[in-house]
């Protein structure tokens, strides 16, 4: 993992402070406190859904904190000839800005973005999370959902930020409404020979061949319906484990002095029980299987809190955004 260099005494200072009773952190937070999270949706005008998120921004300065920009772009993909999948697909990619990791070489930066891409793509592109309204024409055309995230600055806890930004961007995404267009032969018109063949064979053919050949957009491009399964997109909590304790939302310095990190991505569907969508262990430290069980249970609790807080903020942002759109309309 990318980490800043830290002297041995700094590491030991942070570790002893964390494990002392009561635990003390460099900025006075308790172990389970998050830094303030700033969030704004709809920041990229040309994307179908976008968000800017910052964890731990200092109040007046422009800089500081882990900053992530996420944007969703929907593209029509051909299932037969292109690389589309029937019913739509989700593709995630994460790129890290060199400004976020000035000490890394370009190769190391690529590796890091690849690592993050893998974690996000394997979790979010999983078939169990695929929204049901990404199909356009059965077996012919579908939406390809491309979720791109950029890490603009890293001051710790980048995975939580990425998953939160991903969830917010997908929440914000509007899928254009499509209507299927069919060609119908004119009544009484000349029927071509090859159509006749199909007609004759269809008595034996049990397959449902859709007659739809193309689609049209009844709305403007920026209108549409929200993605189905909005509540299922997971949030991630990182448990930073300094045995025997764990803590949340590590700063870069704390991350560098933590031997083991457990990522848990949990989904909280409205009607079903919470499910664990992904988990990763990062770092050279060790942990026993029996401990993992307890950690996952705790992680579920913290993720639930994070989920509820994010949900509330997203609803508030939706209201604010609609307000802004109305204001602009009035001005016009």
């Amino acid at each position: 993992m990318a980490s800043i260099s830290l002297s041995k005494s700094e590491k030991s200072y942070i570790q002893t402070s964390l494990t002392s009773t009561p635990p003390i952190r460099g900025d006075g937070r308790s172990l389970l406190d998050y830094r303030p999270i700033a969030l704004e949706i709809g920041v990229v005008p040309l994307a179908n859904g976008s968000v800017r998120l910052n964890i731990g921004k200092s109040t007046h300065e422009g800089a500081g904190g882990t900053e992530v920009l996420a944007a969703v772009k929907l593209e029509v993909e051909d299932v037969v000839n292109g690389d589309g999948v029937d019913g739509g697909r989700v593709v995630c990619s994460v790129s890290c800005s060199p400004a976020a990791y000035p000490h890394l070489s370009s190769n190391a930066l690529d590796d890091l973005s690849y690592d993050m891409t893998t974690v996000l793509n394997q979790t979010l592109a999983h078939p169990s999370l695929r929204p049901s309204n990404l199909g356009i024409l059965p077996k012919k055309k579908s939406w390809g959902l491309h979720l791109d995230l950029i890490v603009l600055a890293d001051s710790g806890n980048v995975f939580d930020a990425l998953f939160m930004a991903a969830r917010a961007a997908l929440w914000d995404t509007k899928v254009p409404v499509t209507r299927v267009v069919e060609y119908q032969a004119k009544k009484g018109g000349a029927v071509r020979q090859d159509d006749m063949d199909v007609e004759q064979e269809s008595g034996l053919d049990t397959r449902q061949v859709s007659r739809a050949v193309d689609f049209e957009l009844p709305d403007y491009w920026d209108e549409g319906e929200t993605l189905a399964g909005q509540d299922r997109w997971p949030v991630c909590v990182t448990l930073n484990i300094v045995s025997p304790i764990y803590y949340l939302d590590a700063t870069l310095q704390e991350e560098a002095s933590t031997p083991l990190r457990l990522l848990l991505a949990l989904s909280f569907p409205k009607t079903e029980a919470p499910t664990l969508k992904a988990s990763r262990l990062l770092g050279p430290g060790e942990v026993e299987l029996s401990q993992i069980k307890a950690l996952v249970q705790d992680g579920e609790k913290h993720a639930g809190e994070l989920f509820a807080a994010l949900e509330a903020k997203l609803r508030e942002e939706d209201v604010r955004r609609n307000q802004k759109a109305r204001d602009r309309f009035i001005l016009r």
């Binding site: 002297s7 041995k8 005494s9 030991s12 200072y13 002893t16 402070s17 002392s20 009561p22 003390i24 952190r25 460099g26 900025d27 006075g28 200092s58 109040t59 007046h60 300065e61 500081g64």
Partner: peptide, 27 residues
């Protein structure tokens, strides 16, 4: 030496407090 001395909790708290004061003044 790379070894830290024993630091009591009051001092650790004071260090964190001073750090935050400096962060705020700088911001």
């Amino acid at each position: 030496s790379n070894q830290n001395d024993d630091i009591d909790d009051a001092t650790r708290n004071a260090i964190s407090r001073v750090a935050n004061i400096i962060r705020v003044l700088a911001a």
